[in-house]
Structure formats: C-alpha cells, structure tokens
C-alpha cells in the first residue's frame, strides 16, 4: 500500500465535497492538466491534497518534471557546439545556384516562366 489516501468516494466527499482525485491512478492521469494549469480549481485542490497525503505520487510528479527538463537539456546541447558541416553548406549552395533563386534570375524572367513549378 503506497498511499494513505482512501479511494472510497464517501471519504473523498467528506474531505472536500468536490470532485475527487481519490486514487494514485487518477492523480497520475491528471498530472499533465495540473502542470498545464488547466485543472478546474476544485479538482486542483483535490489533486494537491492527494499529493500531500501520497509521497509516491508526489515523488512521481517531481520525477515527471525532472524527465521533461532532462529531455530538454539532452536535446538542446548538440546544436550550439557543432560548426555547420562544410559539405552540407556547399551542397545547399550548389543546389540553390543550380535551380533557385540566387543570382541567375534570367531563367525565371523568360517569357512563360522557367518551366518548373516555382511560380515565377
């Protein structure tokens, strides 16, 4: 048994007289709404009461938030460190010069357009 909070609806009604977040399952189901700030006030109060009484759910909430931060940091750090690969830069520039739009607008200015689907 992990949670000192009863899951009986009658007990929930005695606690708050509101919509109940009575079980760990409901608590975890509502986590995302709680963190997004979209839980109705009565539900939010019940949610927070459950967290006070249930250390594992409180821990789960903290770990859920840590998971988000860890994910952000893990994915963000790559971008700033690496210089742009020259081969890719050169390929992009070459493709651009070969087709679009660059310094060679004559093709697009030709009567009837350039024949491709570039809208020019």
């Amino acid at each position: 048994m992990s949670c000192s909070r009863s899951n009986k609806p009658d007990n929930d009604a005695e606690h708050t007289g509101s919509i109940a977040v009575s079980t760990c399952q409901e608590c975890i189901d509502f986590l995302i709404d709680y963190l997004d700030g979209t839980l109705p006030p009565a539900k939010k109060a019940e949610f927070e009461l459950h967290l006070e009484l249930c250390p594992p759910c409180h821990r789960y909430l903290n770990q859920y938030q840590a998971t988000i931060r860890l994910g952000q940091h893990a994915m963000e750090e790559e971008a700033a460190k690496n210089p742009p690969p020259e081969a890719l830069i050169n390929a992009i520039m070459a493709a651009m010069k070969a087709g679009h739009p660059g310094k060679d607008p004559g093709e697009h200015d030709a009567p009837g357009g350039c024949g491709c689907d570039c809208d020019r």
């Binding site: 790559e78 690496n82 742009p84 830069i89 520039m93 310094k103």
Partner: peptide, 22 residues
C-alpha cells in the same frame, strides 16, 4: 538574389536545424 546573404543564412541556421532534424 544576394549570394552572400544566402550563404550567411545557411551558415547561421544550419547547426540548429541539423540538430533539430536529427
């Protein structure tokens, strides 16, 4: 059609775009 502008923006944005695509 300023080629320098194209190269500038490609160089500036590619690192982050590559990381995002990966």
């Amino acid at each position: 059609g300023d080629a320098g502008a194209y190269e500038q923006i490609v160089r500036d944005l590619t690192p982050r775009m590559l990381a995002t695509a990966k």
